[in-house]
Amino acid sequence: MNIKIKGSRRERSEFLWGWLFLLPTMAGLIILNIIPIIQTVYQSFFKTGAFGRGNVFVGLQNYEKLFTDSLVWQALMNTFKYALVEVPFSIVIALLLAVLMDGKIRGKSAWRTIYFLPMVAAPAAVAMVWRWLYNSEFGLFNHLLNSLGLSSVNWISNPSTAYISVAVVGIWSIIGYNMVLFIAGLKEIPRDYYEASQIDGAGGVKQFFYITLPLISPTMFFVAVTRIIGAMQVFDSIYMMMDKSNPALVKTQSLVYLFYRYSFVEGNKGYGSSIVLLLLVVILLITVIQMVCQKKWVNYS
């Protein structure tokens, strides 16, 4: 009622139209995201029966189990290890490529398309191809190693290195996407800075470190935040590339993989929910830390 008295006709109509335009997005967010999140939280307090029936309230039992389950903590470690390899490399390589693409080279759009292609391919198909490249018996990589006289490597079944092999696939798939974001960021940098520095005698390398890097930091920040969130949720490549009997699985499976296994293979959705909530808390923490630290290095000029 207050609005009616306060706002002018125009303000009211703007208010109405504003919300009307927001409605499709809001509806999608609420139905597909907010409600499932609330349900997940709710479910994590239950011992769930099959088919969403016969749920028994167990209080914090799932969380108690979570804190004593060594598999969960191992999976959290695995997820961190994966992110520590995937995120820095995918950012550094993508940035270097973006700078190259932004310069004067022939066939720019062809190169861009090539680097962006992995992003267009279905992740499951990508993982299948890599699985065969990595195969210890019949894979191309080992075939090449053998023809050079080197011995075979267990790319995806050696517990101490398998996560790196998986991360390489992650890096390969995401580089193109990061690169496009960086190219957009580079376009924002005024050309005058480069010209001015050139007159002052700065070379390409100096320009990169003193102009490009500071001025692209907002984009870098965005990419870092979204990439870390993405990397923490790795699932499809591990699911497709590693068999259940793989001896490296325990040292490679991510939290989402464990969540999938508990929820959908073993039908324990309550426990699965508590695992995915742990992941949510971890991601929120990391993101908050990033938000605080950004003041130190992100340059909004």
């Binding site: 499951a124 949720q233 499809d236 959908f264």
Partner: peptide, 27 residues
Amino acid sequence: KWGFTAAAIAIAATALVGCSSQQAGKE
């Protein structure tokens, strides 16, 4: 501004977590 972006990212993060279960099913 800080608070707003933090909230936005928090929502994005939760949304993505929520999505992962759906993706598994979709595949």
